[in-house]
């Protein structure tokens, strides 16, 4: 059993859409068990799911874990609350406003601009470049930015 080293390994597998954070930071590694890595998709139709599974397969094989399977678990459904604090900070530094915590939705639905920190922002499009993001704009520094939606 090498759960510890597998977790470390997975923490170096980047999310294909947002390569600045790892799949562990994104909260989609559900478990590492005796014989399997358990992954959960963000959205049911997320096209990155297959890319992620193949990246995990490659990483496992390279480290000699050829006998560790990859299984998918959809329930309980993934939530943005599972994105780690480190992950949130990395998103912000990358220019993506991180999602609010779901227990703190009231009053904080307006994300701060990841560039200048202003909360004077507006939504441009509810759906953005990927299913998990919306497109926003800062009214102070005028930069458009992605907002990771609370899900």
């Amino acid at each position: 059993m090498h759960a510890g080293s597998i977790w470390t390994l997975l923490d170096h597998v980047p999310d294909p859409e947002i390569p600045v954070i790892s799949i562990v930071e994104l909260g989609i590694v559900r478990d590492v068990t005796e014989g399997a890595v358990v992954l959960t998709p963000t959205y049911t139709g997320c096209p990155a799911t297959f890319a992620i599974e193949s990246a995990v397969r490659t990483a496992l094989d390279k480290a000699g874990f050829n006998d560790i399977a990859i299984t998918r678990q959809i329930d309980p459904p993934w939530t943005t609350d599972w994105i780690s604090e480190t992950g949130r900070e990395k998103l912000r530094a990358y220019g993506i406003a991180p999602p609010p915590h779901s227990n703190n939705l009231r009053g904080t639905t307006t994300p701060a601009c990841p560039q200048c920190g202003s909360s004077h922002t507006e939504e441009l499009s509810r759906f953005g470049s990927t299913p998990c993001k919306a497109l926003w704009r800062c009214l102070d520094c005028a930069e458009p930015f992605d907002h990771f939606k609370c899900h």
Binding site: T44, G45, F127, S129
Partner: peptide, 11 residues
Amino acid sequence: LFLANIALDLI
């Protein structure tokens, strides 16, 4: 974007 995203969820 929103129609394509909804389509993706449905598929």
